[in-house]
Each structure stands twice: as structure tokens, then as C-alpha cells.
Amino acid sequence: MQNPPTLRKSLLCCAALLILFELYGSYLAYRGSIPAAAVASAAGLVRSAEQWQAANDRLMKKIAGQKPKDAYLVIDTASNRVTLRQGDTVVRDMLASCGSGNVLEDPASGRRWIFDTPRGQHRIQTKVANPLWIKPDWAFLEEGKPIPASTSQRAEPGAMGDYALGLGNGYFIHGTLYKRMLGRNVSHGCVRLGDEDLAHLYRNVPIGTRVFIF
């Protein structure tokens, strides 16, 4: 067994080594940093505080200029809410059902579907009253039924409610028979709304309206 002074020295050496590692790690993390002011000066951008403030104000205005001028829709797929907004004002807040996120696989054909509501920026492309749902292949697979060859055998009236607003690529904002499920993620990617909310959107949202989905 080591005598106390030797043990103490060993511990101090270990501690010193650890601290050296800590210091070198800190140096590694921040080396190469140079003050921002020096960078701006090197770039020939020597400005007074007022000039910087004016430039910043201009940029803020340019960013604000990108916002939609007309009414737009924001769809929150996590909270299952659709809001119709005009500027920063919420005109109508609606409960919805968005994509379930489930996956359906058909080993026979090798196809796979992910039932997510598509995120990003879209536009209302079509508006249809009394829409007819043309059931896609996955709907037949889910029901355990054979996939029909003709389109007429796929048509199902009433399933989409009174109106449908098309977002493109087969995604719609439409009604639902399962109103108790509003507020839950249960759809196959479309956005389901209650009857009154859907009618309000159909009447008040023109084709071309921007739709932000997140």
C-alpha cells in the first residue's frame, strides 16, 4: 500500500491531468473564433449603429412582406386544429382529424402507404360540393376486399361530407362520418372537419388560398 504523501501526489497528478484535458477541450471548442465586429470590418462593412439599425429594419420589413396578404389556413397536425387567419388575426379555429401516421403494407404488390398529412406550404386547388370519394387501393385492402378494376366500383358517395377542398396529390380538406374522432389523428392523410366548419371554409376560402401544414 502506498504511503499517504505518495497517494496524495498521485491524486494531485490525476486531478491536474483531468484539468488539463478540460482546458484543452475548452480551447478546442472555441478556437478559431474571431469577434464578429472584426469580420464585418474585414468585409468592408464598417457602419454606425444607426446604419445597422436601419439595415435591420429594412430586412424585417422584407421578411414581413413574404407573409400572405389574403386569408390563409394553418393546419396543426399535432393538435388537430385548423385555423383560418387574416394577417395575425385568427378568424376561425376548427377542430380536425389529421393523418394517423400508420403504415399499411401489401406484401402481394410490394406497396406501402404512410398515412401522414403532407406538411409544408400548399394551396387550395379545387372546391367541390357533394364530393364522391373514389376509393383508392388501400381502402379496399383495409376492408379486406378485392381491388376493383373499374372506377365506377370505387365511387362512394357521402363519405367525404358535403364539401371537399383539394390540396393536390389526392389530399383534401373534407367532412367526416366519424365526428366523435375529431381532435384525434385518425385520417389517412386528408384533413377531416365538422360540417359547420367545412361549410364555412367552402363559402369563405377561395381557390388559391395558401395552406400551411405543420
Binding site: S100, G101, V103, D106, P107, E143, G144, R184
Partner: peptide, 21 residues
């Protein structure tokens, strides 16, 4: 949740339609 179904497999289809989001 991943459902694997094929045409005519009613059991699998029932599973696919249960609410799991």
C-alpha cells in the same frame, strides 16, 4: 403502427381498422 394486409385477409383488415394512431 405497421399493418400488413393482403386482399381477402379479413383478420388482418380488422386489425388495420382498429384505432391506433
Amino acid at each position: 403502427d405497421v399493418h400488413v394486409v393482403s386482399v381477402g385477409e379479413q383478420d388482418a383488415a380488422d386489425t388495420a381498422q382498429t384505432l391506433k394512431a
